[in-house]
Design a binder for these strands. Structure first.
Length: 747
DNA sequence: CCTGCATTCTTTTTT
DNA sequence: AGAATGCAGG
């Protein structure tokens, strides 16, 4: 046991060995959070305080769950299979499969992913003749999910206005449709599971007695419903509540926009009477300057639980800042810098390019590509979300559950079978009359549509018959041929990759079966449900690990969100401009600006040794050149931590151009810093935007007869329409037509 | 039923 | 700019 606790610092040790009671661990970035979580489980097991079956480990991503299991396996020679460790959704799915009757679901219930759900909503609106201009499907989807994630069924939603009353009604209809079709969307997995626990006493008691230790990762990301779910599982308020061990960091809460409630941390502390909150503040990742910058940034947020990271690693290098004239120059400079790092011995995979939004990756990719620097972009379309895969899965879903109308409509005419919108409308109408699923309605049909659609139903029936006795992967293989999907993509010009993906689906099925059919070891329970349904659930819940394709040593590109939890020797945070980061849609109210700030905090704390902040004075966005000034977050970083590699010509009055370049100054780290700081002096003067601004440019100080002195923030249009945005300080920020306003360049 | 053009809308993302 | 959807015409 002592071995387990070796090398833990005081706080980590204290957290791991806490008595089994409600605990809140505030774990700063890079403070060994995952280590504490897994060591805690190992310690509970090894000291005999817990059996594997009594442990419930909850994460948000499959990746995190997998990592927990891997690390546990390395620590203890135990069978981790007896424990329930998984994502909220995965665990709820497991529970609902086991008690599908009590949860009023068909045994083969299918899971709708976000796109399926949207399709289902559109279909509903059409069937009910609802104007989708007045009730945009996406908005309705958001409304439904937000309510589910707050724990509200339609009856519980307060509707004060006509509009909301209608949306509640649609929410109700939507639920009814899902129930009829035997499908469940993501938030429904949780809500259903929660309701099952609250309504069914024996089942509730069963799980409450079983899970004595509940460990929750990334607690700051929980939404209301997830909190309620944990609360009921832990038998909160009962005499013998389970011990919840919650680990989180309020400063890294960056999912407020999708319903995460940081407030759950405070509520947890209060409602569960957490005796003492343990703070993990020693950072093992970043050098001092990087941490100082991070601390300084996050200090501007209000309502923090309070935490200050420190390190004993020394301050390290200054943070390098580069301001480029355009986004293309920004990308080019970054690529040169990366090439220099690589020449100095860095490996490309230890270098990350982070950006606020995905749209920014293109310019960077172009530069990397044309320079022949290998790179990998994270966060594209995932395997199970590809259209050919979704088509194949739709056939499989129909085999498992013919009432799945979404799946039916997806493939009834794909590949084309001469079934048009007209026939389908007819079918949908009579399905409403008979109150049956589309599939079940087909026999009632007469006339021409009947034969075409009847043929489709016969095809599915034949598939079902032919695959009855086959193992899973052969079922998949079989439907790829009999559905005509393979033939379809073979005929398509660009179909080669899709065909390969379909083959990969067969492999995925084979792999899935091997995993699933592993002999059931002692202390392990068999999972519920038939292999096909389980495979389909797996496909919905784990849309595909793009992490899988390791490949060569490549520079890592991703959004800041995607970078949470990761770390790199060198990190470039790109596009650090007002309007981009913070994003313009989040600049105006305090709550969302604070989330942007946390996002910046997350970004900064990804770096181990070297951090770059880069920005561009102009960039193409939505097909238009936009001009921006440096991010307001620069003001929050102590000037002494920054090394400007470009002259500072910036907004703010009287800001004199200061050149940050001072030779050397930094010490060397990690072996790949052979050349001091900036390899070569770079072009210093920002170029004038290639637009006639009458000798003006962004950042230019100007004088206006009425508004006084100001600085140009942005420009738009050209010729007679050319407008500039100027910050006149106390006189405000104004857009002025260049042709009308008499502006005099000063400074 | 398919094809091509117009219109729209673009943060972040996991399940 | 570019993707993705929706609608008119072949």
């Amino acid at each position: 046991m002592s071995k387990l606790l070796e090398n833990l610092n005081t706080e980590q040790h204290a957290a791991v060995t806490l008595p089994p009671q409600a605990a809140l661990i505030l774990a700063g970035a890079g403070s060994g959070k995952t280590r504490v979580l897994t060591t805690r489980i190992a310690w509970l097991l090894q000291t005999g305080q817990a059996s594997p079956a009594s442990i419930l480990g909850v994460t948000f991503t499959n990746k995190a769950a997998k990592e927990m299991l891997t690390r546990l396996g390395a620590m203890l020679p135990i069978n981790t299979r007896g424990m329930w460790i998984g994502t909220f959704h995965g665990l709820c799915n497991r529970m609902l499969r086991a008690h599908y009757r009590e949860a009023a679901l068909p045994q083969t219930f299918q899971i709708l992913d976000t796109a399926d759900q949207l399709a289902a909503i559109k279909r509903l609106l059409k069937a009910l003749n609802v104007d989708d201009e007045k009730f945009p499907p996406r908005e309705l989807q958001h409304f439904i999910n937000a309510n589910k994630e707050a724990g509200y069924r339609p009856q519980q939603v307060e509707a004060w206005d006509e509009y909301t009353r209608k949306r509640v009604e649609l929410y109700h209809e939507y639920d009814a449709q899902c129930q009829k079709e035997g499908v469940v969307d993501f938030p429904e997995l949780l809500l259903r599971s929660y309701e099952l626990l609250s309504r069914n006493e024996p089942i509730r008691r069963h799980y409450q007695l079983r899970f004595r230790h509940i460990l929750v990762d990334e607690f700051q990301d929980t939404n209301r419903l997830q909190y309620l779910w944990l609360k009921i599982l832990a038998a909160h308020g009962a005499e013998q509540p389970a011990a919840i061990f919650a680990v989180g960091d309020d400063d890294q809460s960056i999912y407020g926009f999708r319903g995460a409630e940081v407030g759950n941390m405070r509520d947890f502390e209060r409602e569960f009477h957490v005796a003492s909150v343990i703070r993990l503040e020693q950072n093992y990742r970043s050098h001092g300057n990087i941490l100082d910058a991070a601390n300084a940034i996050i200090a501007n947020n209000s309502k923090r639980l309070g935490k200050n990271l420190w390190t004993d690693q020394g301050s390290g290098e200054p943070i390098r800042v580069y301001e480029a004239p355009t986004d293309i120059d920004e990308g080019r400079w970054i690529v040169e810098e990366i090439q220099q790092l690589v020449r100095d011995g860095a490996s490309r995979s230890d270098v990350a390019l982070l950006y606020r939004s995905n749209a920014q990756s293109r310019v960077l990719e172009q530069q990397l590509f044309s320079s022949g620097v290998p790179y990998k972009v994270y966060g594209g379309l995932r395997f199970f979300e590809r259209q050919e895969i979704k088509h194949a899965l739709a056939y499989l879903r129909l085999l498992a559950n013919p009432d799945d109308d979404t799946a039916f409509l997806r493939v009834v005419n794909f590949p084309t079978r001469g079934i048009g919108a007209r026939s389908l409308e007819l079918l949908q109408d009579s399905a409403r009359t008979f109150n049956t699923s589309l599939y079940a309605t087909v026999p009632h049909l007469s006339g021409k549509p009947a034969s075409a659609i009847g043929g489709f139903v016969r095809l599915i029936e034949e598939m079902r018959h032919a695959t009855e006795e086959l193992p899973l992967y052969e079922i998949v293989d079989h439907i790829l041929d009999t559905s005509g999907l393979r033939a379809h993509y073979r005929a398509e010009r660009e179909g080669q990759e899709r065909l390969e993906n379909l083959d990969e689906l067969v492999s995925a099925a084979r792999y899935f079966m091997n995993e699933a059919d592993a002999p059931v070891a002692e202390g392990e329970e068999a999972q519920h449900g038939d292999p096909l349904s389980r495979f389909l659930a797996h496909a919905s819940l784990e849309a595909g690990d793009h992490q899988a394709e390791a490949g060569q040593d490549a520079v890592q590109l991703m959004t800041v969100h995607a970078a949470k939890g990761l770390e790199f020797d060198a990190v470039f945070i790109t596009g650090v401009e007002d309007g981009l980061f913070p994003h313009e849609q989040s600049m105006n109210d305090i709550a969302s600006l604070e989330e942007e700030r946390r996002l910046m905090y997350v970004a900064v704390t990804r770096a181990r040794k070297r951090l770059y902040l880069t920005l561009a004075q102009s960039r193409m966005l939505h097909g238009q050149t936009r001009y921006a000034i440096k991010s307001r977050f620069f003001e929050e970083i102590p000037e002494g931590l920054l090394k400007w590699l470009t002259p500072r010509v910036q907004a703010g009055f009287g800001a004199s151009a200061s050149y940050g370049q001072r030779s050397g100054g930094s010490s060397s780290y990690g072996g790949w810093n052979k050349s001091p700081v900036s390899p070569k002096p770079r072009e210093a003067m920002p170029q004038q935007p290639s637009r006639d601004l009458g000798g003006l440019r962004i950042g230019q100080l100007v004088r206006h007869a009425k508004f006084g002195d100001g600085v140009i923030l942005a420009a738009e249009g050209s010729g007679a329409d050319a407008k500039v945005q100027i910050n006149f300080g106390s006189a405000g920020v104004k857009w002025l037509l260049l042709s009308l306003a008499k502006l005099e360049a000063i400074g």
